[in-house]
């Protein structure tokens, strides 16, 4: 979509006005600074998704809409997790982070902050693997997606 102030609120407003839900939404300018790319995750029947796509296309500032589920695609989400890390927990969490191919990016005597990238499911799985009371804080970006192989979204 056009990288203009107000474009994001048109998209968000459309979803609330028509009763569609937004699971997650990420947006940032592209290599062409006049354009922003948004990845929006929503859940609905085929009919609802079809309407969502059509309604998004109707917004004047939206340049192109694709449903990534129509082809093979890759999804990634970034999560930062701050966990309590005291005593035996420290080794345990380090091992887990390695298994999930994350990295510890900030350390104190009582805590680790872990950076983890993957599908939303993988991030969920990591959180499940940690003792819940050890999780002090999480922040997630929401998924961004791209088509596999030669499948390119260009304007």
């Amino acid at each position: 979509m056009e990288n203009e102030s107000g474009a994001l609120s048109r998209v968000a407003g459309l979803f609330s006005a028509r009763g569609y839900n937004i699971e997650s939404l990420t947006v940032a300018p592209t290599e062409d600074p006049t354009l922003s790319r948004m990845t929006l995750v929503t859940i609905g029947s085929d009919e609802v998704v079809e309407q969502v796509t059509k309604q998004l296309n109707k917004l004047i500032e939206v340049v192109k809409v694709i449903d990534l589920n129509e082809g093979n695609h890759i999804e990634r989400e970034l999560m930062l997790v701050k966990v309590r890390a005291i005593g035996a927990e420290r080794d345990e969490i380090m091992r887990l982070t390695e298994i999930f191919r994350g990295s510890i990016i900030d350390v104190t005597t009582k805590s680790y902050t872990i950076e983890l990238t993957g599908t939303s499911c993988k991030l969920d799985a990591f959180l499940k693997a940690i003792e819940p009371s050890a999780v002090l804080e999480t922040v997630r970006t929401g998924a961004c997606g791209i088509g596999r192989g030669e499948w390119v979204l260009r304007v």
């Binding site: 009919e47 079809e50 309407q51 059509k54 309604q55 296309n57 109707k58």
Partner: peptide, 8 residues
């Protein structure tokens, strides 16, 4: 003329 009116 409006695709979103079709199959709504």
């Amino acid at each position: 003329i409006d695709p979103s009116s079709i199959s709504k």
